[in-house]
């Protein structure tokens, strides 16, 4: 008790850590991020070497893997789970798919850019976003529009 009174900073750190731990457990156990992160790992394992597709594909770099990992982790609680893939230019892809005309794919590159293209029924959208470490609001909105 006396120790707690004289170390308020340590007490608040404990509270913060406990809250984060609970949040992470919720995220992993019920919201599909854990599954997506496992799939990310499997794709990276398969595509981290040069020529992984037999057509001179570039290897998916560790930096690309880390950015995709961070992006998935930063998705909001309850967000739809993406499917993970890779492109021959070494980018990792996250795809949200409902039908052939309702789909969105994001390419994560090693330089901090997210290139997206999506079909929203009769319309389509594409562009490039900068990734600052959390899922951009534009991305969140695009997935909700599918």
């Amino acid at each position: 008790m006396i120790e707690a009174i004289h170390t308020p900073v340590r007490f608040s750190e404990l509270i913060d850590r406990a809250a984060q731990g609970t949040q992470n457990e919720i995220r992993k156990s019920t919201l599909g991020h854990h599954v997506a992160l496992e799939e990310l790992w499997e794709v990276w394992e398969e595509c981290r070497h040069a020529n992984w597709d037999g057509y001179d594909a570039l290897p998916v770099e560790q930096e690309t893997y880390h950015r995709a990992y961070t992006l998935i982790e930063s998705l909001p609680l309850g967000f739809p789970r993406p499917s993970v893939g890779a492109e021959p230019d070494g980018h990792l892809t996250l795809e949200w798919y409902k039908s052939q005309r309702r789909t969105l794919s994001i390419s994560v590159d090693p330089d901090g850019f997210l290139h997206y293209a999506g079909l929203f029924g009769p319309s389509k959208k594409f562009g490039t976003l900068v990734f600052f470490g959390t899922a951009p609001n534009e991305l969140i909105q695009l997935v909700r529009e599918i």
């Binding site: 595509c47 597709d53 057509y55 570039l58 890779a86 230019d89 892809t93 795809e95 798919y97 794919s105």
Partner: peptide
Amino acid sequence: VISSNHIRGSNNTVKPDAFIPHP
């Protein structure tokens, strides 16, 4: 298609990843 991650297992359709030109 020679990469398994280019196919959607849910409905056996092909992802755009399979149509990206490179190198």
